[in-house]
Nucleic acid binder design. Structure first.
Lengths: 192, 192
DNA sequence: CGTGAAGTATACAGATCTGTCTACCGTAGC
DNA sequence: GCTACGGTAGACAGATCTGTATACTTCACG
């Protein structure tokens, strides 16, 4: 993991630094030079491991999916609730905690999707990572035995995205409020 | 309006061009030089009317509120439906047409909110213009006699924002689908 | 007239960005 | 010991961006 001098290997340091900076400030707003400086690495080393900034950003989005989507969101949802149905609602409890962090950074997938033009590989990648999240919700909905898992997942993700943007505007209680509409959606499906 | 040679005054041409480019490509992605070129104006003329690019972008957001929020969204909603309650739902019909346009450009307020860092005047301005839209929805909700107009407006705007981002990802039917949850929210309020 | 304001055309300063090039260093493995 | 490779340090090319400076034209208005 770490070499004798106590440092992680260069590729790992680069990606870690890119993760911190890209997720906090956005991909476009962070230059390669800053990543090089803050990861204490030579510029040539970065370009040896990642042929372009775009490739580095794609690796960042992959890492974001592992750390944010899987190791945080999915993991917390499963920790907080035990039944699939409760877990669908727990998404909004997890979001509530997230929004209230003093260093709330927003969703890199939404930010990247909107920052990059269509046909940009980063735009496509962000869209993909968002659809992975929807797949996760759809799985939960399926396990919960709802009538139309795809539809439920779509509607819940609308609320999640709306809440994330609202939180970026300063509505820190957006998740708590979105949760009540999420409940409504689940009740409605059960009633059909 | 137009001078003898058939051209609008320079300030108007600049703002029109900025409107087209900023709303389609985002503020950060469009340089002052391109606006200068496409509005057939000298660079000094632009900086005579707008002291900085930020001021020009603020004027663009104001214009966006007039053209998009007032002259298009509000106007279409009132044209399509006659009762306040129907008008709340008509928002999503108007969005449906919007999303299906081949040149769907997204919401400049959301884009700017996420593109600019907090404390940036453009971030604040975008947040303001979004709250104006929520005020419009809240007014309609009040006229519709719902129990909690502020809450209804908040929830409907969550759906609107979620649908706009989903449309940016390619879900062109996001508005039509969001509409059904909007109906649910209104029914729920009526039932309390 | 003739004066001053507004517009034009263009060059330029200064910053920043991505990506490349060169020269050097340390070390692991043969 | 030598070689090959990964990393370092820093300069640099070339593009792009905001904003300014300069010199010329046009035209309304007193």
């Amino acid at each position: 993991m770490t070499d004798p001098s106590g440092q992680s290997p260069p590729r790992e340091r680069i990606l870690d630094t890119a993760y911190e900076l890209f997720s906090r400030h956005g991909i476009g707003a962070v230059g390669v030079d800053r990543i090089v400086a803050e990861s204490s690495v030579a510029k040539m080393t970065l370009y040896r491991h990642f042929p372009s900034k775009t490739e580095l950003a794609l690796a960042f989005l992959e890492l974001r999916e592992r750390r944010w989507t899987r190791d945080w969101l999915q993991s917390e949802v499963q920790r907080l609730a035990s039944t699939p149905r409760d877990r669908l609602l727990a998404i909004f409890d997890v979001f509530d905690e997230w929004f209230h962090r003093p260093d709330y950074e927003g969703c890199s997938f939404i930010n990247t999707l909107l920052e990059m033009r269509e046909s940009d590989p980063l735009h496509e990648a962000a869209a993909h990572h968002l659809s992975v999240i929807r797949g996760f919700i759809e799985d939960l909905a399926g396990q919960a035995g709802v009538e139309h898992p795809e539809e439920i997942a779509f509607q819940l993700q609308l609320l999640m995205i709306g809440a994330i943007v609202a939180a970026g505007r300063g509505d820190l209680d957006a998740a708590r409020r979105a949760r009540s509409t999420a409940e409504l959606i689940l009740v409605q499906d059960a009633g059909v």
